[in-house]
């Protein structure tokens, strides 16, 4: 056993100028290749010898992919290279997708947010990926480009397991699209950490729509409490059609805690995660109600 001092040898480094070119490189190098954009995950994994790709495809210089765009019809569009910082600084994200803003401002350090991308965060498919919960609640679609062409996948079908997505070996995320939210909607993201900068012990995201005092749509997502970031569908069902009184909120919170499959790891315990999931869900629901626009 030894603790490595350096990144394993990389034989080839490519800097494609378009996504299509990157996809072609991916297709020709297969499993030997890894995509580099922000580097915050890949370089760390290589450093710890958890990954030793022979070939690195650096997509960070592909032009015009760092965008965060919004229009009423199409909603929010996040380019493949949109950084967490770009989201953090976006007024439209802060004002219209407050849960996404809240998730981003508590991810890593400001320096890290400068390097890390949203696409990288979801492609890593960590159960604790903080942008995943908000995107699940916002029912985002992930637009992929591969050698077979383009396709889109609902984010709710994107995660396949810890560290696994439905991305094929020759596919890349080209864009993440987030629909606009109907009037009467509020959202919230809450996260518990060990210290002020940390991965989530548990995170809860919620997007609720209310009309005439009743909940017409409810979406709740939970992070770090199962093999993938997940939607708490039964808890959502408790809320839809209900007036959001204390009893309904408590029932939804309890239901959410039953839907998760938490484990004990270095960050927290199974019991704690279960217990605070209810607390966070309940708090997130109340915040949504207060914040609805």
């Amino acid at each position: 056993m030894f603790f490595p001092s350096t990144i394993p040898r990389i034989d080839q480094y490519y800097r494609p100028e378009s996504l299509e070119e990157a996809v072609a490189l991916l297709a020709s190098h297969g499993k030997e290749a890894r995509v580099l954009s922000g580097g915050t995950d890949l370089v760390t994994l290589m450093r710890n010898h958890a990954l030793a790709p022979r070939c690195v495809i650096d997509i960070s210089r592909i032009g015009d992919l760092g965008y965060v765009r919004f229009d009423e019809a199409g909603g929010l569009r996040l380019g493949a290279l949109a950084t967490l910082k770009a989201l953090e600084q976006s007024t439209v994200v802060r004002e219209r997708y407050s849960l996404l803003h809240e998730a981003v401002v508590h991810m890593g350090s400001p320096t890290m947010r400068n390097q890390a991308t949203v696409a990288g965060n979801i492609c890593r498919a960590s159960p604790a990926a903080d942008t995943a919960g908000p995107l699940l609640c916002l029912e985002a679609t992930v637009h992929l480009v591969g050698s077979g062409g383009r396709r889109s996948v609902p984010i709710t079908e994107f995660f396949a397991g810890p560290g696994k997505t439905v991305l094929a070996a020759d596919e890349l995320v080209a864009e993440v699209r987030v629909p606009t939210l109907p009037p009467g909607t509020g959202s919230a993201f809450l996260k518990l950490m060990r210290v002020a900068e940390d991965l989530a012990k548990v995170s809860a995201s919620a997007v609720l729509t209310l009309r005439d005092g009743r909940c017409t749509d409810a979406r709740i997502a939970l992070g770090a409490v199962g093999p993938t970031p997940l939607r708490a569908r039964r808890a959502e069902a408790v809320l839809v059609g209900a007036s959001l009184d204390d009893r309904a909120i408590a029932l939804a919170a309890e239901t959410a805690a039953e839907e998760i499959r938490p484990i004990t790891d270095l960050r927290s315990t199974r019991e704690y995660r279960r217990q605070v999931t209810s607390v966070l869900v309940s708090r997130a629901i109340r915040l949504c109600v207060d914040r609805r626009q």
């Binding site: 580099l36 580097g39 915050t40 370089v43 760390t44 450093r47 710890n48 650096d58 960070s60 320096t111």
Partner: peptide, 25 residues
């Protein structure tokens, strides 16, 4: 590995952890 910030430098004016970026990038 990007957890301590000691290696922070500016690249094109923006702070970056120099340990998490390849030189060639």
């Amino acid at each position: 590995q990007g957890d301590c910030g000691a290696c922070t430098i500016l690249v094109d004016g923006q702070p970056v952890n120099a340990c998490m970026e390849l030189a060639i990038e």
